[in-house]
Design a binder for these strands. Structure first.
Length: 829
DNA sequence: AGCACGCCGACT
DNA sequence: GTCGGCGTGCTC
């Protein structure tokens, strides 16, 4: 046949593809390629496949072969979605590495990597069958209810119906309705990415001639004055801008849509429909790079470049406010001049418009931004632009490591110690910092890690000469490090100078700053009002019904919240156990700090920044804007305030209770506390003025506090490292945690013990536990943790992981382990 | 992740 | 008895 002449031999060959499904399943599945798709099928393209009875998914082609599977009949691919592969070969290899290293499935990696608009899944839609006559009186109550609902809303999903009927199992009912020909059941895949379209208007070239234009006006003014207005508005707009959309024209002229339409019909206006990008930025900002590096910055930059000739990864250890960003900018400029791409990773919270705008000054439209506050369509557009190599620089949070880079030259991981680089909740439990190093390796690119308080892992690698190390000890522009004052809460309580949770010292310094029209940040590492509510009579404490935690009282909602599962209940006014009205709030969070301060300083403009106040899309940015515009005098916040805040007029920082950090029962508590305190302190007095930090604590002589005051990170490092070594912790050892979960605590105990025994057979006393973690029940699952500690060099971690995987697989086939969930967490933070 | 099948308690 | 919960296994 004619249409078969142009192609290759593949026309006659039946092809099979192995695809990755966006699900937590352990292997790939094989589908058959219809002959007519032979020419378009390719690795990395998305295909639509049916998986199971009815569900349709977008899968990624991972391999193509001519070999038919022996044991089953492969289903056909339904559709090839892409003209060009959406995922590169490098990415597929990267996904594979993540899945192996972090002990999860490729499908889970795919889920994290692809913007959801690129992986549409079908949804079951229920509609009325209008072609069939039936008597509704013959239906039972529930069936009748469904038809009634479909009269009002013609299309319902399965979960809509579950909600409607108030029960979980609805499929049998829908099935009988379908068999009675009352309803249709269909699987619909919606193309979720929609380009944004606008209509652009231009004037017919005929009217570029002044005479013709004059004539046109004289006609229009008489016959259609509204249309004349529209033409006038067009001419006015065209003086300032090149592209004019129909909407802009309507807005400017006040003319109706119909007027414009008739002008288009008369061919006076020419309309053109175009896809436009959602990723706009102000083109008026000319790219300028006219800053001068200080001597210290310049020598650090030279040093980094020198190190890059010998090392793949370099750590830039620079104190807060040392001007690391400017060094990054110079490096990025040099890299993109060679034509390679740059990835600049930042913690989500630090990715504010402030830093984006700052980089736009230098890179203009060449810079792409990628983070979780972007909506799906925006993310797809960034993805596609990276794929087409239209960005030179990508600025992004954790998940930006998954973008389809083709030729990376440099990855910068700023604030590399940040724990938010590690994903916790759903697998893949990956570290974007560590993954970035692997990714760079694949691209033969360099990695620059930047931090004022490097993670011990990184610092250790730098000291071991594995990474290059560049130190920058001078603050930019000669800004002094803040003065740190430690205030003993015990002392002040004795002297009765405490005002609720504020020491006299803090109150006085806050007042002084406010008198000078300066700003204050207060840090309290806990959100909500009070973490524990306790009955003074019977000591009853309200607990979460799903988790092993006490509920936190939130004053703003008047409810008790669980911070682990989201459960909420009304706060009781009498003790549910004994009926007493003597209920006491114990402990305090940001809400209470804010509340108390508003009583003590009623004239102060207060704001709060924590998870609860920054949930919606723009709320974080709004708070930061208000702070910048000095609409806020005092900002109370959780760890968030330690990151990415850079405001000249913040001169006083108060740490309400340092002990909550220091007392944390974790081997990293000291490292974390130091990082936290140093990072918060770094926010004080950035430009021109020396700032002041007040640390309130019950334990002013604590070693870590002394080290923070002395600004002696290496002292902290060397003392802590001794302990890490003797207790077999990272960076000397690698840790893999296996969290075992089960609804029944007894089964969990037995099975976790059994699993640990199996592991011990291979790994001996490298296996610790199982032990109950700090919180031993979350969302109704009891949890036990098994920890594996591997010495760094003596054992192949790759082989160990294969063995662990085998043991887990083996374990899951045993009858008694039914219902057990095992979650591996490699390199837990 | 969905969805079907099968077993078991609590209702008409 | 039957309905609906829930556990278990499978999907190319």
């Amino acid at each position: 046949m004619l249409e078969f002449t142009e192609g290759s031999h593949t026309h006659r060959t039946t092809l099979f593809v192995e695809v990755i499904l966006p699900l937590a399943i352990s292997r790939n599945y094989t589908y058959r390629v219809p002959l007519e798709m032979n020419d378009v099928i390719a690795i990395g393209k998305r295909v639509v496949v049916q998986f199971g009875k009815s569900k349709l998914y977008t899968a990624i082609v991972a391999a193509i072969s001519e070999q038919a599977p022996a044991k089953y009949e492969a289903k056909y691919i339904l559709e090839v979605m892409d003209e060009q592969p959406a995922v590169t070969l490098k990415q597929l290899a990267f996904w594979q590495w993540i899945a192996e290293y972090y002990m999860c499935n490729t499908g889970e990696v795919m889920n994290a990597a692809l913007p959801s608009a690129l992986k549409l899944a079908s949804e079951t839609k229920i509609t009325l069958n209008k072609d069939h006559e039936y008597d509704r009186a013959l239906l039972n109550d529930k069936e009748f209810l469904i038809t009634e609902a479909l009269d009002i809303q013609p299309e319902l999903t399965v979960s809509d119906i579950a909600k409607l009927l108030g029960q979980k199992t609805v499929m049998p009912i829908l099935k009988t309705l379908f068999e009675k020909n009352v309803i249709n059941i269909s699987e619909e895949v919606s193309q979720r990415y929609k380009p944004r379209r606008r209509t652009f208007i231009t004037l017919h070239p005929l009217y570029r001639d002044q005479e013709n234009l004059k004539e046109l006006f004289s006609i229009l003014e008489k016959r259609a004055p509204k249309q004349a207005d529209a033409v006038l508005a067009f001419i006015k707009l065209s003086r300032h801008q090149k592209n004019i959309t129909k909407n802009e024209l309507i807005e400017e002229s006040g003319a109706a849509d119909a007027s414009i339409k008739s002008l288009i019909e008369k061919e006076i206006f020419i309309a053109e429909h175009k896809n436009i990008s959602r990723l706009t930025y102000d083109e008026d900002e000319e790219a300028i790079s006219n800053f001068v590096l200080s001597e210290a910055q310049q020598s650090a930059l030279n040093n980094i470049k020198e190190q890059f000739t010998k090392k793949e990864v370099v750590l830039l250890h620079g104190v807060t406010s040392s001007g690391k960003t400017q060094i990054y900018i110079r490096l990025m400029e040099e890299m993109i001049s060679t034509g390679k791409q740059v990835l600049y990773l930042l913690p989500e919270i630090a990715l504010t418009t402030h830093i984006i705008e700052r980089l736009r000054i230098y890179f203009g439209g060449d810079i792409g931004v990628y983070h979780s506050r972007f909506n799906d369509n925006e993310r797809v557009e960034v993805w596609q632009k990276v794929l087409r190599n239209e960005y030179k620089v990508v600025l992004g949070a954790r998940s930006a490591v998954f973008l389809p880079f083709s030729d990376l030259g440099l990855i910068i991981v700023d604030e590399e110690h940040e724990t938010s680089y590690k994903q916790f909740d759903p697998a893949p439990r990956y570290s974007a910092r560590d993954a970035a190093i692997y990714l760079a390796n694949m691209h033969k690119a360099k990695v620059l890690l930047g931090s004022a308080t490097p993670s011990f892992e990184t610092y250790h690698n730098a000291h071991a000469q594995k990474y290059g190390l560049v130190e920058l000890t001078e603050r930019y522009g000669g800004v002094h490090l803040p003065q740190i004052e430690v205030v003993s809460i015990v002392e002040e309580t004795k002297r009765k100078t405490m005002q609720s949770h504020f020491t006299g010292v803090l109150m006085a310094d806050m007042q002084k700053a406010l008198d000078n029209k300066e700003q204050v940040i207060l840090f309290q590492n806990r959100r909500g009002y009070a973490p524990v509510l306790i009955c003074k009579v019977c000591a009853y404490t309200p607990k979460c019904i799903n988790c092993d935690v006490s509920l936190t009282y939130h004053k703003s909602s008047g409810k008790l919240h669980c911070h682990y599962c989201g459960y909420k209940e009304d706060s009781p006014s009498v003790c549910p156990a004994c009926g007493s009205t003597h209920l006491e709030y114990k402990g305090f969070g940001t809400e209470k700090v804010e509340d108390e301060l508003s009583v003590l300083m009623p004239d102060v403009r207060l704001a709060r920044m924590d998870l609860d106040t920054t949930r919606s899309r723009n709320s974080l940015q709004n708070i930061l804007n208000d702070l910048e515009e000095k609409k806020i005098d005092v900002l109370v916040g959780t760890q968030m305030v330690a990151k990415g805040l850079d405001f000249a007029d913040v001169t006083v920082i108060g740490i309400i209770n340092a002990d909550s950090l220091l007392k944390y029962p974790d081997y990293r508590a000291n490292e974390r506390s130091y990082q936290m305190l140093a990072q918060v302190s770094g926010r004080a007095g950035r430009r021109g003025k020396q700032g002041k930090v007040i640390i309130q604590t019950y334990d002013p002589l604590h070693r870590v506090i002394k080290q923070v005051i002395a600004n002696d990170y290496s002292d902290l490092y060397f003392t802590e490292m001794e302990e890490r070594k003797s207790f077999k912790y990272p960076p000397y050892y690698r840790i893999i945690n296996l969290d075992v979960k089960h609804k029944d605590p007894d089964v969990l105990n037995n099975q976790a013990e059994y699993l640990a025994r199996e592991l011990r057979q291979h790994f001996g006393d490298r296996v610790i536990g199982p032990e109950f973690p700090l919180i031993n029940r979350i969302r109704n699952y009891y949890i036990k943790s098994i920890m594996l500690k591997f010495e760094r060099d003596a054992i192949s971690i790759v082989k160990a992981k294969v063995i662990i995987r085998d043991i887990i697989t083996q374990f899951q086939t045993t009858k008694l382990s039914k219902g057990c969930i095992i979650q591996p967490n490699v390199d837990p933070y």
